[in-house]
Each structure stands twice: as structure tokens, then as C-alpha cells.
């Protein structure tokens, strides 16, 4: 049984080696550079908006940053609805996936996709199909990190 399994693993590895020759190489460096510049560009827009709302319109700092996030989310949803965001995302990769744009797009695209199944089971039931995972594990990670922080402070301070 184990030798059979080992043989299978060996066969799979041999096949993977052969297949790998014909697979296009992932463009890691180009993708990193694109992600760096596009992500950075989105942050510049965010920073400019933040300054506009804060210094320009005189909103308090926390209100201004909420308005900045809301503006970026609205722009992303519009680009998703017009069908151009997925093309930008394919080009920019992590550059658009990591900022709040990626989160907004995952919700807007799922809502659009499932609209034909109705507003309750379709849009409502599927909007967080992709984003739900980010929320669940984001909240959980925050819990773990804050637990560690609390324990560290207790052990040092106590």
C-alpha cells in the first residue's frame, strides 16, 4: 500500500516536472512592481482625499478618514458596475486587491453576479461570499493579536 502510494507520488512529481516546462513563468517581479505602484497610487489618492476633507472642508480627522474610505469604495463600485474594474485588477494584481478597493469589488461583483437570483437569496445571500472570509478571519486575527498584546502587557506590567 505504502509503496503504491510512493509510486503514485513519484509519478505525479515526474508529471509536474514535465508540465512545468510548458507553463508560462509567473511574472513575479513585474507583478510586484505593478502592485507597488498601483497600490501606492491608490494610497496617494486616499491621502489627497483625506487632506481635502480634513484641511479643505475642515472635518475632524476621524470623519475625514471615513469619508475617504467611502469615496474610494464608491469609485470602486462604479468601476465594477461599468465592467472595467476586473480588467484593472487583472493588470494590477495585489495593487488593487489589497487596499479597500479589493474588498469593495469583491462585494459589488458578487452582488451584481447574483442579482438575477433575487434580492434576498441572490444579492443578500451572496454579497459576502468572498468578503465574508475577510471579515471572519480579519476579526479573528484581531482577537488573537489583541489577546497576545493583553497578555504581554499583563505579564510585563503585573
Amino acid at each position: 500500500m505504502t509503496t503504491q502510494h510512493a509510486k503514485q507520488v513519484q509519478q505525479e512529481q515526474a508529471y509536474d516536472q514535465l508540465a512545468q516546462k510548458h507553463r508560462p513563468k509567473p511574472k513575479v517581479l513585474a507583478n510586484c512592481l505593478k502592485a507597488f505602484f498601483v497600490g501606492g497610487f491608490i494610497c496617494i489618492i486616499g491621502e489627497a482625499l483625506n487632506m481635502l476633507y480634513g484641511k479643505g472642508f475642515g472635518y475632524p480627522k476621524d470623519v475625514a478618514s471615513s469619508m475617504t474610505v467611502a469615496t474610494i469604495v464608491i469609485i470602486t463600485c462604479l468601476l465594477t458596475g461599468f465592467g472595467v474594474y476586473d480588467n484593472i485588477g487583472q493588470w494590477a494584481g495585489a495593487g488593487t486587491a489589497v487596499p479597500v478597493t479589493g474588498f469593495a469589488n469583491s462585494i459589488a461583483s458578487a452582488a451584481l453576479e447574483h442579482k438575477s437570483e433575487g434580492f434576498v437569496l441572490g444579492v443578500g445571500g451572496n454579497m459576502f461570499k468572498l468578503a465574508g472570509s475577510v471579515i471572519v478571519w480579519g476579526v479573528f486575527s484581531a482577537f488573537v493579536v489583541s489577546l497576545i498584546r493583553t497578555l504581554v502587557i499583563m505579564s510585563i506590567g503585573g
Binding site: 507553463r23 508560462p24 509567473p26 507583478n31 465594477t80 458596475g81 465592467g83 474594474y85 476586473d86 484593472i88 485588477g89 487583472q90 494590477a92 494584481g93 495585489a94 488593487t96 486587491a97 478597493t101 479589493g102 469589488n105 469583491s106 459589488a108 461583483s109 458578487a110 451584481l112 453576479e113 447574483h114 461570499k129 468572498l130
Partner: peptide, 13 residues
């Protein structure tokens, strides 16, 4: 896979 308007990057394969 994903919603058609989802902007995740697909590999060349």
C-alpha cells in the same frame, strides 16, 4: 470560479 466582475488576478495558465 469567482463573480465575472471580480478583479482577482488570474495566472497565465
Amino acid at each position: 470560479r469567482y463573480p465575472t466582475e471580480y478583479g482577482g488576478q488570474k495566472p497565465d495558465t
